[in-house]
Amino acid sequence: MIVRKLAHIINTWRHARGEGWESRRLVLAEDKMGYSLHDTLVKEGAELHLEYKHHLETNYCIEGLGEVENLATGEKHPIQPGTMYALDNHDKHILRAIKGDLRLICAFSPPLSGREVHDSDGSYSKD
């Protein structure tokens, strides 16, 4: 059994940060669960251009207001607490935090190691 508390992850190597976002990585590849689980904050006003070429991602909003834009179709979907969106086609997208910090619970498959950084195109490397 794995039990972790968010308070014990803050300010450790499992607490990744970038411009406009933070990811607190609760479950990672080393845990051998087949996915990784993250408690992510997107700072109010941030606009993240992302495309996970090697990973599928599901996001569930628990705080804040925002939107996700599918760059292939131009569709914009509002995000608020209780909204889930899944990037099931490695979708190139823009995630915007509009009012308050957007807090998302995110699952990645395959799981992240926890040490990835975004490439220039907004993706993570395959490994």
Rank of each mutant, 00 (worst) to 15 (best):
H77Q: 15
L71I: 00
C61H: 02
N89A: 07
C61N: 01
F108K: 09
S123C: 01
D121A: 08
A16W: 07
E116H: 06
S109M: 11
L104C: 12
M1W: 09
S36K: 02
S36L: 00
L48C: 01
E19R: 12
D121Y: 04
D31P: 06
L71P: 05
I62K: 14
R24S: 10
H49C: 04
H55Q: 11
Y35I: 05
E30L: 10
Y60Q: 08
R17F: 03
V27S: 00
K5P: 02
P111G: 03
N70R: 09
N59R: 10
R115C: 10
P78F: 06
H90L: 05
I2G: 00
H55C: 05
E116V: 00
E47V: 09
H77G: 11
A72K: 15
Y60T: 08
H90Q: 12
Y85H: 12
L112D: 00
A29W: 05
E22Q: 14
K43Y: 13
R25K: 15
A29T: 03
I79L: 15
N11G: 00
K43E: 08
L56D: 13
D119H: 15
K32H: 14
M84W: 12
L112A: 01
Y124V: 03
T83P: 02
Y35T: 10
L56C: 09
E67Y: 08
G45V: 04
P110K: 12
S113W: 12
I62S: 11
T12Q: 05
K126G: 14
E19M: 09
S125Y: 13
H54E: 09
M33Q: 07
L41E: 04
S120N: 13
L71A: 04
S113G: 14
E22L: 00
R115T: 09
I98Q: 10
E63H: 14
N70C: 06
K92F: 03
I105A: 02
P78K: 11
L48E: 01
E30S: 14
E67F: 08
M33F: 07
Y124G: 04
D91E: 14
S109I: 06
H77C: 12
K126E: 11
G122H: 00
C61L: 00
L48F: 02
S36H: 02
L71F: 02
D88G: 12
L37K: 08
M1Y: 13
R14W: 03
T73D: 04
H90S: 04
P81C: 09
D101V: 05
V117R: 15
E67I: 00
K92L: 07
T83Y: 10
D88S: 12
H77A: 11
K99F: 05
H49Y: 11
Y52F: 09
G64R: 06
K53H: 13
D91T: 14
A107V: 09
A107H: 13
A97E: 01
L37M: 11
K99W: 08
P110S: 09
V3Y: 12
S23H: 15
E19F: 02
A72L: 11
R14S: 05
E69N: 03
A107I: 06
L56S: 13
E57D: 11
I79V: 10
K43V: 05
H77Y: 15
I98V: 13
V68Q: 07
E51F: 01
D127P: 02
D127W: 12
D88M: 07
R25V: 00
V117Y: 13
Y85N: 08
H55G: 08
L102S: 05
L6I: 13
G34Y: 10
S36D: 01
R24P: 04
E57C: 03
H49R: 10
H118Q: 13
R96H: 08
